[in-house]
């Protein structure tokens, strides 16, 4: 019991540190927010949401998530690059604290950032694309966090993975997107089903939950290996 509490306290410590750092600059959140907003605007140029309301309903969920995925990719790299300065990462390696606590803390922080971005973006999308959800809107409370966690979990893990490579910024999307496709598919379909009300999102929510559980376990098991890879 004390062990679990100890672990939790380290996770919270990392989380607090991340939040503190982000609060000082607010770079990641501002960047992601504006990036996704731009995606929404740019995509609305590709087709006319006002004269094609059905189409807008069908694809706006996908646009929102793809925008978020791109935005998260741009900011996730920074969250680890920060640790490389002043050899902080080496200090983490030497520290007796469990490595996965560092990962969980960072992933939770990124989760909060992306969620915050979503909270701002949902009304923007509703406004821009004239969306009135025809399905069960309350399910979004389940779909949004599950989808965000899937995205952030793999993103945080893979940006740690690509730390040591040359052209790190290029590598992250190249390895993150293929792995995340099932989660992206599930979250886009789940969101679309809520907006259009055309089909039942249960299957997709279950897939998302399964994806989250499986990859959380794999990431926790393997993060130590990644941190100590030499």
């Amino acid at each position: 019991m004390t062990k679990a509490r100890h672990y939790l306290s380290i996770v919270l410590l990392h989380l607090r540190k991340e939040l503190h750092l982000e609060w000082r600059s607010r770079d990641a959140i501002t960047g992601m927010l504006f990036f996704t907003l731009l995606i929404a605007v740019v995509f609305s140029l590709a087709f006319d949401p006002t004269s094609n309301p059905t189409l807008a309903r069908q694809i706006s969920g996908g646009i929102a998530w793809i925008g978020l995925l791109f935005a998260a990719t741009t900011s996730l790299n920074g969250s680890w690059a920060r640790e490389q300065r002043n050899q902080v990462l080496d200090a983490h390696r030497l520290s007796p604290a469990p490595p996965s606590a560092l990962f969980v803390g960072k992933a939770l922080a990124n989760f909060l950032f992306v969620t915050l971005v979503e909270v701002v973006l949902v009304p923007v999308f509703v406004l821009f694309y004239n969306i009135r959800p025809l399905g069960q809107a309350s399910l979004l409370w389940l779909i949004l966090p599950l989808g965000t966690w899937a995205l952030v979990l793999n993103g945080t893990f893979f940006s740690a993975l690509s730390l040591r490579s040359r052209n790190r910024d290029l590598l992250l999307p190249l390895i993150l997107f293929p792995i995340s496709i099932p989660a992206l598919l599930a979250v886009v379909n789940g969101t679309t089903s809520v907006i259009t009300g055309e089909f039942d999102p249960n299957l997709w929510i279950r897939l998302l939950a399964g994806f989250d559980i499986i990859f959380t376990v794999v990431a926790l098991l393997l993060f130590g290996t990644v941190l100590h890879a030499e």
Binding site: S165, R166, T225, V226
Partner: peptide, 10 residues
Amino acid sequence: FSDGPGSRTI
């Protein structure tokens, strides 16, 4: 993209 030590593990 990654060579040197650690790339195999990663």
